[in-house]
Design a protein around this nucleic acid. Structure first.
Lengths: 340, 340
DNA sequence: GACTGGCACTCGTTACAGTCGAGTGCCAGG
DNA sequence: CCTGGCACTCGACTGTAACGAGTGCCAGTC
């Protein structure tokens, strides 16, 4: 069980070499490229141990070694430090994000930036409604029996829904409805609204009761039930780097997974505050992604988290660099959101 | 350049066989599978002519024939009829689209439906702002110097922008602004708004002038300048069908093109009313897509066109079937929009 | 006891030769 | 104008052999 320092150094060297060359690495090449201070034969013995412990494996009997998912895990947990970003990268991030004009714009720019910097597939979750508060509710009459409900959240998200009223409602009543709804709900966290909506119906004056009842149904749907999470994606073309060597030749399962919002949300949503999560290969719960790794983190104004973002790439990825970039982008986006 | 009926029949047979088998088709197989009434040798002579004219070609000397882009073009223009949809397909379309709850929902469902039915990459443009009218403009105070501008278009699209006011504006003034803006702009086509916005500033009472000036800038940006076209995409995983045979082994350029909104808009936007457009291989203006074909059409309530939709696939695609599906989906979506 | 040099062995890669067969082009005859 | 026949081409596949990167193991050294 004892993995002494040199064995760990060998593992680190194998990971680093394999990530950069994408070819199985042998004992001789290893001593040449790293100052290990021992001979190839010694390294071979260490490799044999590492292989027995499941950290590396041989694709073929007469080939060099390749890290296993377990090997990457050890590397990420104990053998690597987060690389500091280069000044060029810092500048790129700032330049890319200033001038964003609304939330859509911020998210779009962020996801492109992330894809470009990491050269991988980037995923950004829009600020989750579940973690937002109501800033304002607007009711816009479309006809006498139809309203457009527009909800503006403090995170900048705007959701709209059509409300079919049970009967004609005069303009004055719409004004009353709007006032009542905002008095009760403005400022409330979305997750806390159901009882408030219930109260709205009960407290509504008799003449507004039917309209309010219908409205409350749509409100509940919009605010809570229909957990309308949104996702932006970019950089799928990066999957084709490394010409079909990664992902064992088929992009199919990856592309399929990327089309499922549910899957993406599971991947990048719901991280514990300020932690960066790294899922390597088969640690992933989706079979389609067992050849991929995901680096994700939460973001939000200040210390609060309102959504997640991250990247997906081959297990053979530059973890330290990717982790650094994902964190930095998340921090900048948080600052940007804090300004609004 | 006489291509008699039989030669055309041979071309049609070649296209149909190649599309379904994905393998170069030889003279013998052709007479076996189609009732051409002549011998393989005769077919070979016809093939030689077709090849000379550039409609088919041989991948290798000892292989069968494959249609060229020009061959597909002739096939689409003169040799195929649009297939009627199967009842199952009709039902699928209806089932998929009923119950859509807002515009986002409609577009999402549509693009997924298209991808599923055609088994190709589907693209749907949101109703273009340029072809929409203003239904209502809402101003929501965020702070004393900040407004959220929400525009609701008759096509169901909702755009929002933050407005930084030059100084504090009391609530009453916001109400006035809202009224003025709606009186002037509600009902107007977006493309016709610039002079109206100009008039708004000029006619504004003195105390509202500065706020109105700022607001007008944002209005113009939102309504006209920033031609904020939106696009939904689905079915990229379908690119991997036919295992790398299509697209000459590299999905890279295709995926890259699909990430560029500008490219997609050029592809599916701006079709002449009620025409279905088919772009085959190198007819396409983008180099990245010279191995692909695009079938697109416009859609909108009634006879008006508010946006485009279509699919992208290998040049070796089932054109009659795809064209039929794209048209049918566009028609259904149009009906759906007309109801709102 | 840990490290090293040496050596036999494995096995994937590459090159080459040979065979097979689908498909063609051409021609002579109906 | 169509057809059957025939020689020809050339990619796909198979089998063999040489090559070499990389390994595991062992005996020897510090």
């Amino acid at each position: 069980m004892g993995l002494d320092d040199r064995k760990l150094a060998v593992l680190r060297a194998i990971v680093e070499d394999y990530v950069s060359t994408q070819e199985p690495v042998g004992s001789k090449a290893l001593v040449e490229r790293h100052q290990l201070g021992v001979s190839p034969a010694t390294v071979r013995n260490d490799m044999a141990v590492l292989e027995e412990e499941g950290y590396i494996r041989q694709p073929h009997t007469s080939a060099g070694r390749v890290p296993t998912d377990r090997g990457y895990r050890l590397f990420v947990d104990r053998l690597s430090r987060v690389k500091p970003l280069s000044p060029a990268e810092r500048r790129a991030i700032e330049r890319f994000l200033v001038g964003a004009v609304d939330l859509d714009d911020v998210v779009h720019r962020t996801v492109r930036l992330l894809a470009q910097l990491t050269r991988q597939v980037a995923v950004v979750q829009y600020p989750s409604l579940a973690r937002s508060s109501v800033r304002h509710l607007e009711l816009v009459p479309i006809s006498t029996t139809r309203l457009m409900l527009v909800m503006i959240a403090d995170t900048g998200r705007v959701e709209q829904r059509l409300v079919e009223l049970p009967g004609p409602v005069p303009a004055d009543d719409v004004t009353d409805l709007r006032r009542l709804v905002n008095e009760k709900l403005a400022g409330a966290r979305l997750s806390e609204t159901p009882p408030l909506v219930q109260a709205l119906v009960e407290e509504a004056p008799a003449e507004l009761r039917p309209a309010m009842t219908t409205l409350s149904t749509v409100l509940l749907e919009t605010l809570v039930e229909r957990h309308e999470e949104r996702i932006a994606l970019a950089g799928t073309a990066n999957l084709t780097r490394g010409g079909l060597l990664d992902f064992q030749g088929s992009l199919r399962p990856i592309l399929e997974a990327l089309e499922e919002e549910v899957v993406l949300l599971k991947l990048i949503g719901e991280t514990e505050p300020s932690t960066t999560r790294v899922l390597i290969g088969d640690e992933n719960e989706f079979d389609n992604l067992r050849a991929a790794s995901v680096v994700s983190t939460g973001y939000g104004p200040g210390a609060t988290i309102v959504g997640g973002l991250g990247v997906l790439g081959p297990t053979r990825m530059d973890y330290p660099g990717t982790i650094a970039t994902v964190r930095a982008v998340a921090r900048y986006v948080g600052e940007l959101l804090a300004q609004n």
